[in-house]
Design a protein around this nucleic acid. Sequence first.
DNA 1: GTCTATAAGCTGATAGAC
DNA 2: GTCTATCAGCTTATAGAC
Lengths: 221, 221
Amino acid sequence: MQIAHKPGDFNGAEPSIRDRNFAIIIAAATSEFAGHGLKGARMQAIADRAGLPKGNVHYYFKTKESLYLSVLDNIVDRWNDQFDDINEDDDPAEALDRFIRNKVRFSFEEPVASRLFASEIIQGAPHLSRYLHSQMRPWLKDRATVVQSWITQGKMQSVDPNYLIFLIWSSTQHYADFEAQVSLLLSKPKFDEAMMQSVSDFLSRMILAGCGLTPPQLANN
Amino acid sequence: MQIAHKPGDFNGAEPSIRDRNFAIIIAAATSEFAGHGLKGARMQAIADRAGLPKGNVHYYFKTKESLYLSVLDNIVDRWNDQFDDINEDDDPAEALDRFIRNKVRFSFEEPVASRLFASEIIQGAPHLSRYLHSQMRPWLKDRATVVQSWITQGKMQSVDPNYLIFLIWSSTQHYADFEAQVSLLLSKPKFDEAMMQSVSDFLSRMILAGCGLTPPQLANN
DNA sequence: GTCTATAAGCTGATAGAC
DNA sequence: GTCTATCAGCTTATAGAC
């Protein structure tokens, strides 16, 4: 029996066929699940996207649900990676600006992952409640405490820290989750680096202004 | 052959059985589609939610897709109803404040409709592209022109009007679309009137500040 | 480890009694 | 207009040859 491991867990060795196919299937499944949800996704469609016969997909992932869980797990990992560190002694303008820009970058670079996450939460987060409880809630509480300490220190205006973080999440994720709408309304079939810049600048300026702050780039003018 | 009409089109007469069942099925289907998307939704589940046998649902809506389209149509109608009028000679602070509060109210009062709309767009808006083109795009263009005229008149700071409207949409819809996440993170199983107030106040204050404006309620302090 | 064929069960849609 | 029974096709998952 093979020891269970995630792809990428190998230590410096070349990626095995197993790891490679694992990754290919996860990527294919992410798109399919993002586009149709757990129940609406078709194993055949995932196999087609992966360029593999359906039986092969079942060889790596016994059931559709176990594949879905692996995909969510993979996304949560990447999500956590970009969870920026924010500390009490940071400058709020710099820290928030950095946080906003990281989130926008994630939306522009990983829109499919963002959409799958959104899809799962829209459907009531039945497979993510453990993660939300055990990881995201402590994370939010920590960051809210930091924001509150900035307020107490007089470094920024008094705003509800939770609502502030929800505002940053929602406004940045919008460009991934509602890409179809934004792209159609702006007649921009593809988002480019320039748009990512202008969105980042806009959101950073708007949100920081709401906190009585000025974005770091503009601070020296 | 019965003349086709939507439920509610009757003029003062009592609602027929047909109208009543139409409405019941639409409501049941809205929840089911919001939770699972077009492909993932089950006609049996819709019938169960409606408290009707499956055959009856097919009597009113020949196919699953036609039911889905009716549901979307119904939502678009309600969406358009709350599309606030914003005019060049309005006071921007008042108009934006009103717009934001209306959007928050819609999110809190019709979260399921908001989620179905979001779900459709996340999946690429395949059934909404006509609506986005023919109705939403002209609407956005109009409002953007109004915002631009406010800027030209010196009534508010210069910001990108499209991004401003996207910010209002995303930040307000978040409380409907991501209700499961917000509710879990805040340990609030149910959103109440007080929360709707505080969210409205927060978002109005933040977004208006970004435009160099003060919410009307605070203007007299 | 790969791939095809097939089993077992589910789902949309319809037919037809009431 | 209502509801049950049922069909045809699709979908997940497995068995088994290679």
